[in-house]
């Protein structure tokens, strides 16, 4: 049996890394007493598989992971309680907000997710400048970024991966932007998008709002359908 969980990451805990979050989950699952399945070998570990990594310092209202349940004890799972039990054992700032039983045939999160929606607060700019930069980016034929890969410079065109972008309005010290960025063949980071703008914009705070799976027919849905999503305030500390 496999369960897909949705969780949020807000506040001080955003300064922990993807690896740190994996370890927090491992301990929380162990403390919660959930009947997990363990890997075989000398050093058995609970089998948890995470989706796309979230950069250190970014917040999120839609992170996912899949956990394997020991099939012999699967009847001990109470799906009505699971979210509150897990949240209770997670540190402040991490909360489980959705759960769904999936099958072993369900494609993994890493394979399935095709794009993410990001809320990006930028500073040292105003709405007009940001709007100009966004319009120029949308009108461009290509948006080239250069990055280092195995000591060599590689260039990518971000334009096909910029699925949508919008200016939401001013914030206390800048402008709030929402953008949907593709993850195939590789995930585009919000900072890369900001670097291709003319002029480049500086991020203050970034939140992942959604992860999306787009199927062959172009239908877009989230990795699980949440019955009740806790209303986590975006940007709250």
């Amino acid at each position: 049996m496999r369960i897909r969980l949705k969780f949020t990451k807000f506040g001080k805990v955003r300064f922990t890394s993807h690896r740190d979050v994996a370890r927090m989950w491992e301990r929380a699952v162990r403390r919660s007493g959930l009947p997990m399945a363990y890997s075989e070998g000398f050093n058995p570990r609970p089998r948890l598989s995470f989706g796309l990594a979230l950069s250190t310092c970014h917040e999120s209202q839609s992170e996912y992971l899949d956990i394997d349940i020991d099939p012999e004890r699967a009847d001990q799972i109470d799906m009505a309680e699971i979210l509150s039990v897990l949240t209770q054992h997670l540190p402040d700032g991490l909360a489980a907000v959705g759960a769904e039983v999936i099958t072993r045939k369900t494609p993994s999160l890493q394979q399935a997710v095709t794009s993410c929606t990001w809320q990006i607060d930028v500073i040292e700019t105003d709405e007009e400048t940001a709007a100009g930069a966004v319009a120029r980016a949308l009108a461009a034929d290509e948006l080239v970024v250069t990055r280092q890969r195995k000591g060599k410079e590689v260039t990518d065109d971000l334009r096909p991966q910029l699925i949508g972008i919008d200016i939401l309005g001013p914030t206390e010290d800048g402008v709030r932007i929402v953008a949907e960025l593709g993850t195939k063949p590789r995930s585009i980071r919000p900072s890369e998008l900001l670097s291709v703008f003319e002029p480049p914009l500086r991020e203050r705070r970034v939140t992942r709002l959604n992860q999306w799976i787009t199927d062959d027919l172009g239908e877009r849905r989230e990795p699980i359908v949440c019955r009740s999503v806790a209303s986590a305030a975006v940007g709250a500390t």
Binding site: K12, V13, F15, T16, S17, D20, T56, C57, P91, D92, G93
Partner: peptide
């Protein structure tokens, strides 16, 4: 490693 400075330990 900014997590060094946040506290929040159990």
């Amino acid at each position: 490693k900014p997590a060094r400075y946040i506290g929040c330990e159990d």
